[in-house]
Design a binder for these strands. Sequence first.
DNA 1: GTGGTCTAGACCACT
DNA 2: GTGGTCTAGACCACC
Lengths: 124, 124, 124, 124
Amino acid sequence: MRIIINNSSMVPIYEQIMEQVKAMIAGKELKENDILPSVRSLAKELKISALTVKKAYDLLEEEGFTVTVHGKGTYVAAMNTERMLEEYKKEVESEFEETIQKGKRYGLGKDEIRELFEIIIEEW
Amino acid sequence: MRIIINNSSMVPIYEQIMEQVKAMIAGKELKENDILPSVRSLAKELKISALTVKKAYDLLEEEGFTVTVHGKGTYVAAMNTERMLEEYKKEVESEFEETIQKGKRYGLGKDEIRELFEIIIEEW
Amino acid sequence: MRIIINNSSMVPIYEQIMEQVKAMIAGKELKENDILPSVRSLAKELKISALTVKKAYDLLEEEGFTVTVHGKGTYVAAMNTERMLEEYKKEVESEFEETIQKGKRYGLGKDEIRELFEIIIEEW
Amino acid sequence: MRIIINNSSMVPIYEQIMEQVKAMIAGKELKENDILPSVRSLAKELKISALTVKKAYDLLEEEGFTVTVHGKGTYVAAMNTERMLEEYKKEVESEFEETIQKGKRYGLGKDEIRELFEIIIEEW
DNA sequence: GTGGTCTAGACCACT
DNA sequence: GTGGTCTAGACCACC
């Protein structure tokens, strides 16, 4: 697994791990029942604390993306693709909501905000 | 000044104050050379520490929104409206950028993301 | 008297007044026994508090530059020109001392510092 | 780290800390990626509040001298030595500028001021 | 353990 | 009165 940690980012390391694992699952790079690297090995590879990796795995399990089998390891959960997609979309939508609210408070109009959005997405 | 503090929010209080002051400036509720409430009086009103208010005011000054005169008070800076608007837009754009990147990592396509955005902005 | 106050300077207003009065005395713009504007009138002219002007006048008197006659006003003191010049020089010297010390701590050499000084003074 | 605090100085403690840390970086006593003492430990050592140390560290980070990693500590930034030197020089220059201006206002001539400077720097 | 934030007081300098 | 600084604690998130 190729996970890239940005130490100076404001995003906590455990969230960076979570997000990248989710992205791999979304991108079919990780499939159902695939095993994730062990907490210790990933920690060693990324040169971070094992506790940090564990926290990421715990939260992924809590959100239903993985299943941990005691003594064996952490596996990608058999998940309803539809439901997963819905989760991803909700996350993106709620971030858009926040940004749009902020723009509103700053006195920007609907079309101005849409224009800003289009500028960014067209850089794709 | 009507500022509303959400104590249980994860957003630090001083950022909540900053954002609301910025919004008031953007919304012409606060105009150039208007004086802000004193550090102490606002602290009392919001039932928070004076240091927390001071931190908000310090950062607002750093960002050029206000000017503080020792022994007199904190005033809304005479700011180039154009420049201010540009700052606001940059902030909104960079948030859109982040959300779009996240959507990408989740395997969403350009048009899917645009669709999510449109759903939200049409709720305006 | 033409005194210019910079409200946004970090230098306290009373020191700005003191320094400019001293400069006028040094520049013969103000001579022995000349009367300074009254505390109230100068305060009004500069749109500052009378207490601030009074503080400046008090300190000038303390340093021997002026004499205040109760009920009449504040006059430029009959001062030994030699002694006055010495005071001015000491003040300038001690500021140079501080700056040079700082340069030293920053690892700058004697000649580097002298070079910086020459750059500035040649802009005269 | 040997930092010396002068409690009775008019210079705020956090500025004293900042300046001494900068001097250590300039003097190679602190090198890139070296870790600074933790906020708490330095506060304890200097017998001052942790907040005061934190303020110093925050400002050092803002000026680009250090990088703070949440939960890990504060490190000396990988800084362009050239750029750093330029910053130091600018600071010294602007202080010279101020002192020279003051001398001017006091009626001192260019050569008189240069002479005062030479007296001080020759004491090196 | 680390830094990030906040509190409820205090004293000082400036107006 | 104002802001500028500092204290001695506290709780939280992160590693």
